[in-house]
């Protein structure tokens, strides 16, 4: 098999390649932000007139809260009652599984094709 000779890439084209990569990377970082799909935030459910007992804190916990600079139950209530929402839809989960598996499938398939070429050029045809 004849060895593959790559074309020589012009300087401009090389610079464009780098810019394309960077634009895509920054895009992936900011697109979820623009679409307002920020990561899951905690929500607090602060009761009226919170007390340490009402928040389920024992004397040792109260002592530690005080040492940390939270003098009253009202100061710490927002931190104590903050919870994540872990509910999700099965459909979303399926979409994610398909995307992850599909991604690796594409990469492995194309890699395999390119790899055969590399091996047959390096070691000669069988």
């Amino acid at each position: 098999m004849a060895n593959y000779i790559p074309p020589v890439q012009s300087k401009i084209s090389q610079i464009i390649d780098v810019i394309v990569l960077l634009v895509l990377a920054v895009g992936a970082l900011y697109v979820p932000l623009f679409l307002n799909l920020v990561g899951s935030a905690q929500t607090s459910n602060v009761p009226d007139n919170p007390t340490w007992e009402g928040l389920g804190q024992n004397p040792t916990m109260v002592e530690k809260w005080n040492e940390l600079g939270y003098a009253t139950a009202a100061d710490a209530a927002e931190l104590i009652t903050a919870r994540f929402d872990y509910s999700f839809s099965i459909l979303n989960l399926l979409v994610m599984i398909v995307v992850v598996v599909g991604y690796y499938a594409i990469v492995l398939r194309f890699s395999g094709k390119e790899y055969r070429e590399v091996i047959s050029e390096k070691f000669g045809d069988k």
Binding site: V20, L21, L24, A25, G27, A28, V31, P32, L35, L37, G39, S40, F84, Y86, F88, N92, L93, V95, M96, V99, V100, G102, Y103, I106, V107, F110, E114
Partner: peptide
């Protein structure tokens, strides 16, 4: 996925597009 599902999909889309561009 439980906390950052959309980021996960956005990132994988990035890697899929870049893979096609490379190949």
């Amino acid at each position: 996925f439980l906390g950052y599902g959309s980021q996960l999909v956005a990132m994988l889309s990035f890697y899929i597009i870049v893979s096609l561009w490379f190949h």
